[in-house]
Design a protein around this nucleic acid. Sequence first.
RNA 1: GGCCCGUUCGUCUAUCGGCUAGGACCUCAGGUUUUCAUCCUGGAAAGAGGGGUUCGAUUCCCCUACGGGCUACCA
Length: 500
Amino acid sequence: MERFRFAPSPTGPLHIGGLRTALFNYLFAKKNKGKVILRIEDTDKNRYVEGSEKHIIESLKWLNINFDEGPKIGGKYGPYRQSERTDLYKKYVEKLIKEGRAYYAFDTNEDLINERRKEEEKGSVFFYGQHNRLSLKNSLSLTESKVSNLIKNKVPHVIRLLISTDKNILCNDLLRGNINFDSTVLEDKILIKSDGIPTYHFANVVDDHLMRISTVVRGEEWLSSLPIHFLIYDAFNWTPPNFLHLPLILNPKGKGKLSKRDGDRYGFPVFGINWNKNLSQNNGFKEAGFAPISLINYLSQLGGSFKNHEEIHSFNDFIEAFDVKKISKGGSKFDYEKAKWINSKYIQNINVKDLLSFSNSQTKQKLESLYPHKINDIYKLVKDRMVLFSDDEKILSFLISSPTNYPIEIYEKIRLENAVEEITSAINIINKVPISSFKDSLMHYVKERNIKLGNFMKSLRFALVGDLTGPDLFDIINILDKKECIKRFNNYIEFLKGLS
RNA sequence: GGCCCGUUCGUCUAUCGGCUAGGACCUCAGGUUUUCAUCCUGGAAAGAGGGGUUCGAUUCCCCUACGGGCUACCA
């Protein structure tokens, strides 16, 4: 049984980079009929952010990425929060110390800062490793009795990995093949911090082993720690799992990888669901008006090409098409325009009923009370012009309230000779015939008088909507109904009279 | 600075040595439409540079350049 895991840290909201890592884990697992587990890596007390675990879980749930094991679901390899596994790590690290693969280090923060400064002055960079460990304060350089004294007196200390002196460490990545690292430039990484809590590197390896993970899918930012992880597996004499490092999602405008702040900076969502209640704009794809499957489609083609990008595919399509060989190696820039296009394509392909089930906007609620029997007709009108589910607000506001003002610059564009007279005729026609035959009667009228249809229509639209864009005018008239149309036409006549 | 990874149109990508380098987003032009959007047709737009290997290189190798990541008692 293949086992995968998604292992975020609750240090803030989960952004689309994490979402994509989760997605690829999920696709990979499902493709192989394997399992995916969710593990919360909360080993950093200082960076812990209240509410982020909830945000992570809810974001993934919204995207329909479901886990087989996890903190809420349970499972036989739990607990699934690293903070609840501290005793376990202690047990395992002691084994390493006993076997001489790890050691105690007593250097204080000040000691290390000093060392760093010294190296900096020489124009190089300090790292704790085989070239200098014997001149630092640790159980390798100090006598045995001194070390046991320090420990007995509870002098703060960390536990470091003893990097072997083999020069070459051969690692493997599913995407990039073999990668060689030189152990002489590797740091003796801290395994257990002075507060007794493990670092990412240690907890990660122990858990992946204990939880029987067969393939680790994670972001490329971890590639440089791969040799450390291989060395920890080696120290335990464990077989490492497969590794797949995903290319990073890059900032579309600036430099570097996409960050959580870029959403605010450039005005697009970067989270699955909103984070933070008092927002000037939505930063979640959900609230911005995306369907979960739209985001799945977008994420699947960012740094991969399992399917073509011309149509919307289902979750199952992607599972079937998933192929490690189809993942690209280079990072890819986030492109909000493309994401939006995918969602508009999706909206065009669903029926009105589904569209309505997605939206619960204020606009929809108001329209439902205003036009209880016409809600389907209304959304049918705008379906093809919606990019986001939230677009109904700007497209349909004219159905909720009549135009409050008629922008003079738009009026200038359509200026009709005898405007008052023509609008009055429209009122007469609409009064005389059933609303359903208004179109025929109007066409007849236009033809009889030899009026230019284009301008006349624009004029009517302007009177009704206060703008020149929107759905079919006769459909609008049908929905507004006689009384409201006449009211708006009269308002417009008042406006026209006010001009002269 | 050191180590590691990468590099095809502006962006996301296809190409498993034969290329007139394909598609999508964006963009531009035209058509359909009462308007706008949708939709349809068409256009512009790319294998970082230099060396090899080969009959032939975008594809394989090396160097350089550029981009990215890591370099914390963060993950």
